[in-house]
Simulated assay, not measured.
Amino acid sequence: MRKVKYYYDSETLSYRKIERKRSRKIAIILAFSVGILGTSALLLLLYLNIPGIETPKERKYKRELTNMQLQYDILNKRVGNLVGVLENIEERDNKIYRVYFESNPISEEQRQSGFGGVNRYEMLEGYQNSELIKSTTRKIDILSKRISIQSESLDDIAKLAKNKEELLASIPAIQPINNKDLKRTASGYGMRVHPIYKYRRMHNGMDFSAPRGTEIYATGNAVVKKVRLTPGYGNLVILDHGFGYETYYAHMNKFNVKKGQKVKRGDIIGYVGSTGVSTGPHLHYEVHKDGRVMNPINFYHADLTPEEYDIMFNLSSLENQSLD
């Protein structure tokens, strides 16, 4: 309870209550309010400028920023791991797959092309962590580009593999007649004495002696290019294997195919005879590559062991008399 104050009035010779003036009350209230506001402003100024003192909102933003930096660090590590895996795939692509399929490797410049000169990340500048964001974004963009190039490369390799599979199935790779004991190898490729003309001349194939009617096999997948009777080769079949390969089968007794027919390795295309310029039943076999005559001895890899190949090589190398 507020104390009541009195004063002595000498005129009335009595005590009178002291009454506060209204203006004084207002002045006191104003002074008190100004004091509070000034003190609050001073305290706020001190609060905002004293190191280490943060508002709740600032603490929230700092936590979010710290979490973002942590997430970017984790993302950078994951990107680094993915780059390592991709580099391994790229190396295998260049040094194994493309070498096997006889294709040129992709250069490092091609794999990382398109990331020089222009500032792609200008819109990411001006922030507190711009460098971190720009660096991570650039790594992801480069990784995406390299993955895209590698994906296209694997598509190319798939096509090369398909072509390689077709090549391996088409290339001449077996003997044209059944010759397991190799005793039917009569004459090889090279300079030989002609049985009729009796002088040395180039013999462009290999002769396999066999009874009339012995089965003759296609040595690789092919399309029958020619089936006809010729003056020198007699009954002749020419197979087009694709990839520049052709095989000739001469002096046949009878055909078992017709022009334009597709055949697979091991299919019977005819039978041994002695037609044309020939001294006895046998098969004259030739291999051509890009229009050039090749030594057939190099095309039995699917049919002979290394030991059998050595035996056949020695037999075919003898400069004896050919059968045609």
Rank of each mutant, 00 (worst) to 15 (best):
Y47D: 08
G266K: 01
E165F: 10
I36R: 05
V227R: 01
N104T: 13
G213N: 02
G188T: 03
K225M: 13
M206D: 07
S14Q: 10
H251Q: 04
Q128E: 12
S40M: 11
D310C: 05
V4Y: 08
E308S: 09
R78F: 08
G117V: 04
Y300H: 12
P195D: 07
S113L: 04
Y100I: 14
R111V: 12
Y6P: 06
R111P: 00
E122P: 00
L168K: 11
G117Q: 02
K159G: 08
K159Q: 11
K77S: 11
I142D: 00
G270K: 07
V257F: 05
G291A: 04
N295P: 02
Y233F: 13
D141M: 04
A218Y: 01
K139N: 14
S113R: 09
V118T: 13
G38A: 15
H194D: 06
K57H: 10
D156F: 11
E54W: 07
E319P: 14
L236C: 08
E165I: 09
M252L: 15
I177F: 04
E122Y: 07
T230P: 04
L229I: 13
R212V: 10
A222F: 01
V293M: 08
S278C: 01
H301W: 12
G190Y: 01
V4P: 03
L43Y: 11
D155R: 15
R292N: 12
H282I: 01
S10A: 09
A302P: 07
S317L: 12
I96H: 11
N256V: 06
L132Y: 00
G35I: 11
L75A: 15
Y97A: 12
T55I: 05
V4K: 14
K25S: 09
V257L: 08
K262P: 03
E308M: 09
A186T: 04
E91S: 11
L323A: 01
Y6W: 13
I311W: 01
G80P: 03
K164D: 10
S135N: 15
E90M: 08
Q110H: 09
G116T: 12
V118H: 07
V237W: 05
F208H: 02
H194I: 00
K180P: 04
T305H: 07
R200T: 12
K145Q: 09
G190N: 00
E58P: 01
D324A: 11
G242T: 04
N204I: 05
K145T: 06
E54S: 13
E131T: 14
I311G: 00
G220T: 00
Q128T: 14
L13R: 14
H194A: 02
R16P: 03
S33Y: 09
L315S: 06
F32T: 14
L42P: 03
Y285S: 02
I142F: 03
Y100N: 12
S209V: 11
L283W: 07
H241L: 03
N81I: 13
L229K: 12
S33Q: 08
Y7P: 02
S23G: 15
R24D: 10
K162N: 12
G117M: 04
Y217R: 06
S144V: 06
Y233A: 15
A218N: 00
Y6L: 15
K226Q: 15
D156C: 05
R98Y: 08
S170A: 15
T219K: 03
N67C: 07
G276T: 03
K134S: 01
D267T: 05
K134N: 04
H194Q: 01
